Structures are given as C-alpha cells and as structure tokens.
Simulated assay, not measured.
Amino acid sequence: MAQAFPGHGGFEVIAAGVGPALAAASTASALTAAALKGAPYGLVVSAGIGGGFQPEAPVGSLVVADGIVAADLGAETEDGFLPVTELGFGTVLHEPSADLVRRVAENAGARTGAVLTVSTVTGTAARAAVLRERHPTALAEAMEGFGVAEAAAAQGVPVLEIRAISNPVGPRDRAAWRIGEALAALTEGFGKLAPVLESWNRHDS
C-alpha cells in the first residue's frame, strides 16, 4: 500500500498492489496525475505488513526503513550475487530523510533499520541467513518498498517505508503468521504519526 501526501495538506491512501513492479506503476500514475492537476504530493509512504528478522523485529512490532533496499536486483555469478550497482548501472538503495525517519520512529515507538524489497518472499532459514549476511542492518523484508521509492525518486518526491511485522523471515509457516495483529499495529502506529506527517515539508530534509 502506498500513501501519498499532497503538498497542500491531507493525504490519500492508494492500494498499490503486490510486488515492486505494480507498486512502482501505481505510485507513478498517482504522482503524475496529481502533478498534472497542480497538486503534487509532498511525501509518499509505502506502508503495509512484512516479515521481520528475528529477534530484532518481533511479530507485532513496527519498522521504519532508514534504507529501502532492492535485495535481489542483480545477477548471480560463480562468485555469488552481484547487485546491479556492482554491474555498473542502476541503484539498489533509497535512503529516506534521516530526520523524518527519526521523528516517525519516535512517535510510533518503531525500530529503524533497512527494509529489503524482494520479488520472492524468503521461505527458508538458509535464505534468511544469506540476506542477513548481505544486509546486516536489515530488520524486515517486503515486496513493494523499492518500487514505490523508485517511482517517487523519479519525480523528486521524498519517500518513507513503514512495515508492521506479521511473521518471522525464514521457514514458511502459515500458522506463525499474525496478519491481524500486524495490521492492528500498523493502524495504531499511523494514528500516532498524523502530526509528524502533516507537518512534513519536502524541504525539511
């Protein structure tokens, strides 16, 4: 889900869809439409549920991304995975305003760390270990943040990602998922963020 906050105040909630490609397309369409109407957005927030790396991000907690990372955008080689940046093009990281991240985390009682965007959800302990080794500051993984961030960056709009943890990253165990609990935590967290987000100005950073 992407939340886009117009520069003139207020906010809109957009169901951006599953995966980085659809999230990017939905966000870009909303940003373009708003700009053409003369009411461009001042901030885009990618918000939803995700997996948490244990024990740092337990189920039911909130994570605010200080880095939005494309964890599987690159190439597999005989020497291991290479991100596109090491191939000589593209980007794999968007860094939200540190001040905004701090203010949001403090108000919501959230943890801060990298949130990984993946096209395939992690389902094994081995894969989780690889991701943690590659991204030691990661607290969560989800499927949309980087796509939203790419669309926002293309139009010069600040971005933020907030995730409520619904399940541990690792072996796929549907019985361990707590989607309702995570959605409740996300709702409660956003209830505490209105003063921060409504006062945010793209020039504050």
Rank of each mutant, 00 (worst) to 15 (best):
A176H: 05
G113Y: 09
A114K: 10
A71G: 09
S166F: 04
V148H: 04
G60R: 11
A153W: 11
A152C: 14
V115T: 14
I49W: 00
L62T: 10
L139V: 02
R127I: 00
A182S: 12
E133S: 09
T124C: 03
T117I: 04
V64I: 12
G51K: 02
L100R: 15
A184S: 15
A105S: 15
F53L: 00
I49S: 12
F89N: 01
F146V: 06
P136D: 01
L160P: 08
G38Y: 12
L100Y: 14
A149I: 07
F81A: 11
D79E: 14
L82P: 06
A154S: 14
L62E: 06
E106V: 15
A175R: 15
I162L: 15
R163G: 05
R127Y: 02
P168T: 02
E181P: 00
V121C: 03
G90D: 02
V157N: 03
V45G: 11
D79A: 15
T112N: 02
E181D: 14
I179F: 06
A140R: 00
A108E: 10
V44F: 06
V115L: 10
T137D: 12
V45W: 03
L36Q: 14
Q155G: 13
A71C: 04
A184R: 15
R178S: 08
E95I: 12
V59P: 11
A126T: 08
V44M: 06
A142P: 01
V69S: 06
T117S: 10
A129G: 13
A153Y: 07
L131T: 04
R163H: 02
G88M: 00
G38K: 13
L160M: 08
T137H: 08
G170N: 01
R178T: 01
T124M: 01
V157E: 05
T124G: 00
A140V: 04
G156M: 08
G156Y: 10
P158T: 06
V84P: 05
F146Y: 11
H94Y: 15
R127Q: 13
I49A: 02
V69K: 00
A129D: 14
V59T: 15
I165N: 02
G123F: 08
V64A: 11
S61Q: 01
L139R: 07
D99H: 13
